[in-house]
């Protein structure tokens, strides 16, 4: 099977060998993103839009690691991020613990849950569709427990976050750079894993799991590691976002709110590419703003985009641009991917 089950191009591209070339795209992307608030004059509205962009991009990097690298269809990004956020908020509000303790606790919980889901999937040999259904059911269970556990979670109305109130965390400009730092951190981790022995295993098992196992890749361990790291990424963003917003509710982390968007972002940017999540997030955020007057029809646009991508442009924007670039460079040269 090529790519994550026929998604993306068949040939799995290894990251560049030299460190400079491997991390340069991250440096360029972060410099560009760091300059954005200055060019927009630091308006509150654009900054909060920017924060949302960075958050969804970070979620998408995590999804890219779990789905793009190891073909595990996690339909519970929102739930994992939400579990970390609620854990952090509840610990902070109930016991007055500081954020530097509660956020790591939330991240730990998310990592545990993500790793657990991966482990169950691996040990029960779940096919992709069954893992998709299990994680979707997990998402819905999470949302319904939030709604049902009113004393602990505040139910539908959610919770006001005590931690971080009145600090720089709540200022949009500072938060923008905090989330940029988180995104850059995620990208660096993603690339570092790609370049490590683990990343080699990911590429092998993405092509053919049986062959990878025969070649000495510990498939189970690779998948669970991806689940743990991806979930920790989701959790760190979710918990930090809660501290920044000062408010959490079930809709903040609902399937329709997070997972749908992340899927569109990653599919648009390109599954299995380093900067795909960032490019996809930029496009989706801009288009989303432009389409705001359409109201409910925005969902239709997302749906059509998904269908078109999966029908015709499964390689995503990053690869399409890259192959155009290469064709332009080598004139009549063959496409590399």
């Amino acid at each position: 099977m090529s790519g994550p089950l026929g998604l993306g191009p068949g040939g799995v591209v290894a990251p560049p060998a030299s460190s400079l070339r491997a991390y340069l795209p991250i440096v360029v992307a972060s410099v560009v993103l760091a300059l954005v608030p200055l060019s927009l004059g630091g308006s509150r509205y654009f900054l909060s839009l920017g924060v949302h962009l960075l958050v969804v991009a970070s979620y998408a990097v995590a999804f890219n690691l779990v789905f793009g690298s190891t073909s595990q269809l996690f339909l519970c990004q929102g739930a994992l991020a939400g579990a970390a956020a609620y854990c952090s908020v509840i610990l902070g509000n109930r016991y007055g613990l500081p954020l530097w303790l509660t956020i790591p606790a939330g991240v730990g919980l998310a990592a545990l849950l993500g790793g657990g889901l991966s482990w169950v999937a691996v040990s029960r040999r779940l096919e992709v569709i069954y893992l998709g259904i299990v994680t979707l059911a997990f998402s819905l269970v999470f949302t319904n427990l939030l709604l049902g556990g009113r004393e602990l979670t505040g139910g539908e109305t959610g919770l006001v976050v005590d931690g971080g109130a009145g600090t720089w965390l709540r200022s949009p400009a500072a938060a923008y750079y905090l989330f940029l730092a988180l995104l850059v951190g995620h990208l660096v981790v993603y690339r570092a894993i790609e370049r490590s022995r683990l990343g080699w295993g990911f590429r092998a098992l993405r092509d053919d799991e049986v062959a990878a196992a025969l070649a000495g890749v510990d498939v189970a361990r690779a998948k669970v590691t991806a689940g743990v790291v991806g979930a920790a990424m989701l959790g760190s963003v979710g918990a930090t976002f809660a501290a920044h917003e000062g408010f959490v509710s079930p809709t903040t982390f609902a399937f329709g709110e997070v997972d749908v968007r992340v899927l569109v972002v990653l599919a648009l940017g390109g599954v299995g590419t380093l900067l795909g999540p960032v490019v996809g997030a930029v496009v989706v955020t801009v288009v989303d703003e432009l389409l705001r007057p359409l109201g409910q029809l925005r969902l239709t646009v997302y749906g059509v985009v998904l269908v078109v991508i999966f029908l015709g442009f499964r390689q995503g924007m990053v690869r399409s641009v890259r192959s155009l670039w290469m064709r332009a460079g080598t004139r009549a040269g063959p496409r590399t991917d």
């Binding site: 099977m1 269809l73 899927l263 599919a267 409910q296 997302y302 749906g303 998904l306 269908v307 999966f310």
Partner: peptide, 28 residues
């Protein structure tokens, strides 16, 4: 044109897109 797992996954993602598109249209 695909078989087995690849077919299931692609159909899942396609019909998910269709579901969003139809949902938006119907609610609108």
């Amino acid at each position: 044109r695909l078989r087995g797992q690849a077919r299931v996954l692609l159909s899942l993602l396609l019909t998910l897109g269709v579901a969003f598109a139809a949902d938006g249209l119907l609610v609108h």
